[in-house]
């Protein structure tokens, strides 16, 4: 059945689903941000989303973790190891400190810009490698 403008209504959705599952299934976009205020953690966010298109670049040395159900839970469970892996690459540090009449407040933001990772789940392990 054709729609009014001549396109098949489910064609684009089906194509996107097929391409997404075949091409971008093992590639994820991961970003991290940590905000501390006065030496206390105020906010910490880890963004994980599947990549909708293939990533370009070279594979960096991988990190192997014991896998959980999803990538998010795997990263949460092995947070220290993943932090150390991110630390090998680059982190953006921004620190603002304000002192008014000798009363000081500070705000530090640690950001790992969103980057593409290749993730492979195999035999109970997850292999994560940055594509750069």
């Amino acid at each position: 059945m054709r729609s009014r403008n001549g396109d098949h209504p489910l064609l684009h959705f089906g194509c996107a689903l097929v391409l997404g599952t075949t091409l971008g299934a093992d590639e994820y976009l991961i970003g991290y941000r940590l905000i501390t205020q006065n030496a206390t953690v105020a906010q910490e966010r880890l963004h994980v989303t599947p990549a909708m298109q293939p990533c370009q670049g070279l594979l960096q040395p991988p990190l192997t973790l014991s896998a959980s159900d999803t990538l998010s839970t795997t990263l949460q469970r092995h947070r220290d190891a993943f932090d150390a892996y991110l630390r090998q690459h680059f982190l953006h540090v921004q620190h603002l400190e304000r002192s008014v009449n000798h009363t000081t407040s500070s705000l530090t933001t640690l950001t790992f810009p969103t980057a593409c990772f290749e993730v492979e789940f195999k035999a109970g392990f997850a292999t994560i490698a940055l594509i750069k």
């Binding site: 090998q88 953006h92 540090v93 921004q94 620190h95 000798h102």
Partner: peptide, 18 residues
């Protein structure tokens, strides 16, 4: 009446280890 000091640090750090 009012004394204010602001400091700002902005950098990219790589390969730091604990």
């Amino acid at each position: 009446q009012r004394s204010e000091v602001r400091t700002k640090v902005d950098a990219l750090i790589r390969n730091a280890t604990i």
